[in-house]
Design a protein around this nucleic acid. Structure first.
Length: 501
RNA sequence: GCUCCUGUGGUGUAGUCCGGCUAAGCAUACUGCCCUCUCAAGGCAGUGAUCCCGGGUUCAAAUCCCGGCGGGAGCACCA
């Protein structure tokens, strides 16, 4: 009673309402957030990039802040110009809008300055031990002789890294703690020598920062407030903060999320590269792959990917991504604008002996006004093998949008008589394609790429099919719903890719 | 092996920080009905979770504590 009057706020129920989209962030002021999407241009963008970019953008947008798109291009051995372009194309396709683009490699002078600073302050040293020794010492928690070298030695060695040393002969190491439980803290590498020409800067630089050093500095100077990264970096948070601490630089907040990968659809270049090289898939845009280009070809639209990513929320728990959920989102988005056409697979011939029509207008969509198309008729049709095999003499079925027929003969050629044109809800309805002017197409049906870690030799089914002449008038890229068959995207003049049912 | 992260229906999540208002919401999948000249989309209904297990704290635990077990990741001069 007394409490009530003194502290009425205690009685107010805490806000537990439903939310949409990503969970709110702690202590963020409107307009004060800056996020970043920092891919390495070392491959084609895939669903994992999409998740990261969408999360980065959503949070920036949620609090009216900014998104910086930054290429973390500090390893010339792996990066190529075409990947910068591919990633940008992918982001634009996804509809992710960024406020600023930059390359980490454009900040090399600054990074060198920071490197010198961290060496000067005694928080880093140049190590000339070989790789084996270094990794052995890490395992055994032992410091090497280089770590006790004085400042003049480190300065001299640092200067020598620009010219004298060969790659592998000297690295800059952070003075961490060789006894730390966190192996990432056992004097990790900060910079190393790489003589491979950089895709943008060619031979201008040969000392390159590694991930931990570059990201920490870049995030800090870019004004990033929230740095989102996948969970496998979690152990490196301590390092990230330690580097900024020694450099006396502003610290962004680092948060992790679970990485996204579909079951049986690996994303790693280690797995994908051999498939492409051996010709087991047609390229990085093969519809079986989880690359953005592949999903686009397959008929997945960006809005569906965004909805899907947001439905996964922002968690660290390992997820087995539900591809069918993505398909469901996609289907709902694509359905209202997909033209309906007839298709027949494993076709069977059907002759309607008393056909008396020469053409018919068929609506392009059952609900939306998408116009009609004219189909020429002469009584000679194809129907799907799947439908044909259930037909018996005497059955009455309806040719969709056309008329009802009664089967008079089955076998290789099916014969029938037209009965009437009254719509009868209870009889089976099947699609058909006139044999005159039939268009022959191939349907590519992507299936799961890997089953139990094994490449699935049957991962791409190719089906021959017949469709209507109207198909020829559609642009490549058009999403079509083949009635009673499924959604497909027109990939070329004579090929479609199956999107989903 | 060591270290870290994680564990809610078939699947993905909400709720867990600040214990009760929900023996658990939403989506997807599945089933049925309605609508429909598609096995699509849309509408309605239903099946399905003792919230990993065991103990503890409490009037009260998915939510707090302890102990197990399962899954994932990191241990590079890659990001």
């Amino acid at each position: 009673m007394e409490l009530e009057s003194k502290f009425p706020e205690l009685l107010i129920a805490k806000p537990k309402q439903d939310r949409e989209g990503l969970p709110p962030l702690d202590g963020v002021e409107q307009g004060k957030i800056v996020t970043r999407f920092p891919p390495e241009p070392n491959g084609y963008p895939h669903i994992g990039h999409a998740k990261a970019a969408i999360i980065d953008e959503e949070y920036a947008r949620m609090y009216g802040g900014k998104l910086i798109f930054r290429f973390d291009d500090t390893n010339p051995e792996k990066e190529r110009l075409e990947y910068y372009a591919a990633i940008k194309v992918g982001l634009d396709w996804l509809g992710v809008k960024y406020d600023h683009v930059k390359n980490t490699s454009d900040d090399m002078e600054l990074i060198y300055k920071k490197a010198e600073e961290i060496i000067q302050s005694g928080n880093a040293y140049v190590c000339t031990c070989n790789k084996e020794t270094i990794s052995k010492n890490r395992r055994e928690m032992l410091s090497c002789k280089c770590s006790s070298g004085d400042l003049s030695q480190n300065t001299k060695r640092w200067n020598d890294m620009f010219k004298k040393y060969k790659p592998g002969e000297a690295i800059v190491r952070f003075r961490g703690d060789m006894h730390s439980e966190n192996t990432a803290m056992r004097d990790p590498t900060l910079l190393r020598i790489i003589d491979e020409p950089h895709p943008i800067h060619k031979d201008k630089y040969r000392i390159w920062p590694n991930y931990d050093f570059a990201v920490a500095i870049e995030d800090s100077i870019d004004g990033i407030t929230h740095a989102f990264r996948t969970k496998e970096y979690e152990l490196r948070n301590e390092l990230y903060y330690a580097i900024l601490d020694k450099l006396k630089m502003r610290k962004p907040k680092v948060l992790e999320f679970a990485r996204l990968e579909f079951d049986g659809m690996p994303v790693s270049k280690r797995v994908l590269k051999p498939l492409v090289e051996e010709g087991k898939v047609s390229g990085y845009d093969d519809p079986r792959l989880p690359t953005l280009e592949a999903m686009r070809r397959r008929g997945i639209v960006p809005e569906a990917i965004r909805k899907f990513v947001l439905s996964l929320s922002f968690t660290k728990s390992d997820t087995l991504a539900p591809f069918e959920t993505l398909e469901s989102f996609n289907r709902k988005i694509v359905d209202p604008t997909s033209i309906r056409l007839f298709i027949t697979t494993d076709p069977a011939k059907l002759i309607v002996k008393n056909n008396n029509l020469t053409d018919i207008d068929v609506p392009n969509h059952p609900q939306k006004d998408m116009g009609k198309r004219k189909i020429q008729i002469d009584g000679s049709f194809y129907i799907s093998g799947d439908d044909a095999k259930f037909l018996k003499v005497g059955d009455e079925v309806r040719l969709l949008e056309l008329y009802n027929i009664r089967i008079t003969k089955v076998g290789i050629d099916i014969e029938a008589d037209m009965t009437d044109n009254n719509f009868k809800p209870q009889i089976p309805k099947i699609q058909w394609v006139p044999r005159q002017n039939v268009v022959k197409i191939e349907v590519l049906i992507p299936k799961i790429l890997f089953v139990n870690e094994q490449f699935n030799e049957n991962s791409l089914e190719i089906k021959q099919a017949f469709t209507e002449p109207h198909y020829l008038e559609l642009n490549v890229g058009t999403e079509i719903q083949f009635v009673r068959y499924g959604y497909c995207r027109k990939d070329s003049a004579n090929q479609v890719i199956y999107t989903h049912k």
